[in-house]
Structure formats: C-alpha cells, structure tokens
Nucleic acid binder design. Structure first.
Lengths: 288, 288
DNA sequence: CGCCAATTTGAGTCCCATCAATATTTGTGG
DNA sequence: CCACAAATATTGATGGGACTCAAATTGGCG
C-alpha cells in the first residue's frame, strides 16, 4: 500500500519535475556527479568532469519545510533539482518580504557567502528535491577546474543583474504591469524547463505574489481579475492561461487610466454591435 | 587666476576625497599595487601581495563623464579611489533608474561579467579617480592567490545582499522612511570613509535620489522639508545635517501585522531571551 | 461536515504622482 | 563682473491608484 502511494506521488510530479535521469541511489539517498550538477545549472561542465569522483547528495524537503533560515551558519549551497520554493527576507519587525521563487536549476544560498550566515530564508512551496553543494567542496573544485570558478562568477553576476531588474520594476511599474510581467516571466521560466509557458499553475499565494511585487494581496487579486476581463489571461484560482503573452510583456505604466476605460468601452460597444468578433489583446495594443 | 580657482576647488574637495597616500605617479598617470587595491576594497591582502609586481592604472573622470555604458563590451572592473558616481539602468523607453551611488572603495562593473557586456551605466557625479582592474588580470590573480578569489565571492555576495535590502526597502517603506534611511545610510558610508556621518553634502539631485528610492523629485523635496520641520534633520539645498540619526533610522511605516511570521518569530524571541542557545535543525523539525 | 486558509469583491481613504508656478542656483558668454 | 539661460529646488493644488478595512465565497483538509 505504501508502495502505491509513493508511486502515485512520483507520478503526479513527473510532468513538472523530472528527475535527473542518471542520478543514482545509494544508501537510500540520491546522488549526482559533477557533470549532472553542471547540466542542471546550465553551465559548461569541465572537460575532465567525468573523471571527477566527487558526488553531491540530494535531500528531499516537504512543502512548507525550511531549507535554511536567516542567521543560520552558512556552509552549503543548494541547487533545485525539482520542486518550487520561495526565498524571503524578514525585517526586524517580523515582516516577510519575498525575494524570489526558485525552481529547477536555480542556485540557493549565495547570499550566505558574505557573512558566512544566510541572509535570507528558503522555504519549499512544494515537495522539493535539492542537491547539496558544500561550499568548501565547491571552492576546492573551483581551484581544480577554472571553468567552474568562472561559471560561479557568471551565476552571481546574473543574480545581481536579476535583482537590478527587480529594483527597476518595483519602482517604475504600475500594479498591472508588475503582475503582467510576473506572469510572463514565470511562463518563460516554465518554457526553459520544457513545460508550457502559456498554461501553468501558480505555486504561491496571492499574498506571496504581492510581497514579491510590492503590492497587497487584494491588489494582486484585483489585477488578475482585470487582466482576465481584458482577455489577456484567463485565471481561475491558481490556474493561469496566458492568452496574449506579447501584450502582457509590453504592458507598461498604463498612462491615463481614463483612456484605458474609454478604449475598452469603445471596443465593448463595437462588440455589442457585432462589428467585432471578440475582444483580444492584439486589439488592445492596436488601439492604445 | 585660474590657479586660484583650481586650488579653491581642490581644497573644497580635499575633506572628502583623499587620494591613496602611497599611490605613485609614472608617465603622468597614477598607479597602485595589489596591496593598495586590497586595502581600498577593505579585503585582506594576500600575504605575498607585496612581492606581486602587478600594478593597476588609475584613470580620472570629470563630473558628468561616463565610466562605462550599457551594452558596452565588458573587460574591466573599476574601483573608486575618490569621487562620487551613480550607476543607472535604462529601460527600453529611455527611462533612467538609479541603482547605486558608488563612492570610495566601491567596486563597479560586476554586472558585466554575466554576459560580457555591462548591464548598467556608471556616471561620475564629481571628478573621480578610478582604478582599472582588467577582468583577465583579476581572474589570473585569483588563481595565484586563493584569498583573492574568496574575497571576490564575498564582495559579490555582499552586493547581492545589498540589493536584497534595497528591494525590501522599495516595496515596504513609506516615502518618509525611504528618505530617512537613505540619509542615514549615506551618513554611515561617510563615517566608514572617515568623514562626518552627521554633516555632509549630497552629491546627487533630488531627481536622482527619487529615482533611486522609487519616488518623484517633488516627494523627495517635500519629505526633506518635512524631516526638517520635525527637527530630525536640517537641510538647505544639498547641505544635510542629521540631528537625530537614531530616530531617522527607525522611522518607518508600520505595515499590516498580517504579513508576520509565526514559528520563527517565536524562536527568535526565545533565542533573544537566551532560552535557546541557537537555532538548529532539530528545533526546526520539532516546530514545523 | 465543519473549520480554516485563500480568494474575490466592494467601499472608503490616503499617500504619492502629476501638473503648475515660483524661487534659487549654476553655468556660460559678453 | 554682470546678465541671461538652463538646471535645480521648493511649494501648492488636485486627482488617482493602491492600501485598508470589511464581508462574502470558495476550496482544501482533517
């Protein structure tokens, strides 16, 4: 019986979180070698990687569990092999700020290097399979394989750029644009993972999305409803369908809100007169 | 006559931008060695640094000049030896977003590593003396001195943490709190540089402060006036005096108590009361 | 089935952006 | 050194977008 439930669970996740095919079990726990880790991170593996006998242990976390917490002594980096997480920063008053939603192939824990203590907290939003990379092991490897050191600089630089974009977005965009971009970004990441970038389920609550985007949960909910009304997406609970990804991605600070309303009124009138088949995002773009 | 004006200007800046004493001139341009560079970055210099014959060239920029542009091929990192700058990101519509205000000891250009092209633009706000560190030279040094590689990871990790704090601030704080923290942060940095952290001149416009904080220039101006009225600072044009730094630093809008954490809050409280030695995984399991 | 968390939706409020006018400073050339 | 233009800063009036408070609905789970 327990076999069956285990099987059904792994089947349930098979569509979204494929395990590294060649990862292997040993003593009841999963292990990956250097090449597999590099593939997962989408960085070029050292030519001599296959001769490397270093292996990396996998650890499973259940939804809700913490991978590491703020202030905890730093000693290992984590790579997401499957599952979804959030990283949060908690200020001195206990307010939670979501910083990222890591998923397959993402690296966690970089912020712990600075003070040898994690600066953020990582929490599993679904059951997760994480690969442990002890920092000491990593730096030792970096000394042997120069490409690895280089790759690490690249990954960290990319993270810095990502956060710069985030800062830009937070201070420049309207709520609608923030939510729209959030959805298209999610879609692109799903795409890169080999899944549908147009149709997916949100793994996080409106609250968490709002925290991530600097909005309240009510505003997120209202904005999703509005994008739904506009025909740019369809949304029901956590099921998202991107109907017009292009319009979503280019949606900006929507200048005068009045103009928007006028346009949609115009279109609605036309639709009502059967002069237009239906409202769609392309039309919105054309009319704006 | 022109001598006098030049002299008075350099005198005016002397209090805030002291040149590395031991930097030396050669062929009309200034050079620093590895130890001097490490000191400037506040990272431990390799024990063998003095035997290192690598030297780093200085380059001077006048106020308003660009150090590097977005999209420009990346090949060198810059360290601020003296002067003040801003780094900006420019979106596809030409809108400028200020990302940081680097000053003495800060490292520029990290964001270029990722794609081998700078992702941001650095502009001198005052006359600047910058040390050039060719990326290739740097990585070569990192291979020789392990401490350097380590220090680089530290610096990049610190930058990531800094941006995380920025994101938190942007999405959680009110305009007053943003401006107040901006001022105290500036003060702390001046302090670290050995200058007064309570009395200083702003090197940037209200516009640039606003861009940095996600506010309009009018709001920045109004907020400064308000903090002045409250007696927390005195401000006249760009002259700032922090009268009550403590109150400034703790000034905040109290967000809804909803977004507060539960378990970790309890644990933190216990740790603070010395009822728990420290956080550990066993506790995590017990409380989750 | 009942409880609790998550979500949706509405109504009212307020903070901050926007538009606008003025004042002050900086820079430049005569 | 002064005059003029351009940039910067201050202050006011107004409106809107997002927050806050509140209630109802849905969905998940024991």
């Amino acid at each position: 019986m327990s076999n069956i439930s285990t099987l059904s669970q792994s089947t349930r996740f098979a569509d979204i979180s494929t395990m590294s095919d060649s990862a292997w079990r040993q003593q009841g726990s999963l292990w990956s070698n250097l090449r597999q880790v590099c593939d997962l991170l989408a960085i070029p593996a050292p030519a001599t990687a296959d001769q490397e006998d270093t292996v990396f242990q996998h650890v499973r976390f259940k939804a809700g569990q913490r991978i590491h917490r703020i202030g905890q002594a730093f000693d290992t980096l984590y790579i997401v092999n499957s599952g979804f997480l959030k990283t949060v920063h908690i200020d001195e008053y206990g307010n939670e700020q979501v910083l990222s939603f890591p998923m397959k192939g993402d690296l966690l824990g970089i912020d712990g290097i600075h003070k040898q203590h994690y600066a953020s907290e990582a929490i599993a939003l679904s059951d997760c399979d994480m690969i442990l990379v002890p920092y000491k092991t990593f730096t030792a490897l970096g000394r042997v394989h120069v490409e690895l050191e280089q790759a690490m600089f690249n990954v960290m630089s990319r993270e810095i750029v990502r956060e710069q974009m985030m800062i830009s977005m937070l201070s420049a965009l309207s709520a609608e644009a923030k939510v729209a971009r959030f959805l298209t970004n999610l879609g692109e990441r799903f795409n890169q993972m080999g899944y549908s970038g147009r149709s997916f389920n949100l793994r996080m609550t409106r609250q968490e999305i709002g925290s991530y985007l600097g909005l309240t949960l009510e505003t997120v909910s209202r904005t999703l409803s509005a994008l739904n009304e506009l025909g740019l997406i369809s949304v029901e609970q956590r099921e998202i369908n991107l109907i017009d990804p292009v319009a979503l991605k280019t949606l900006r600070r929507l200048p005068p809100a009045k103009a928007r309303i006028k346009v949609s009124e115009k279109v609605t009138a036309l639709v009502n007169k059967n002069l237009l088949p239906q409202w769609n995002g392309e039309l919105a773009a054309a009319l704006n």
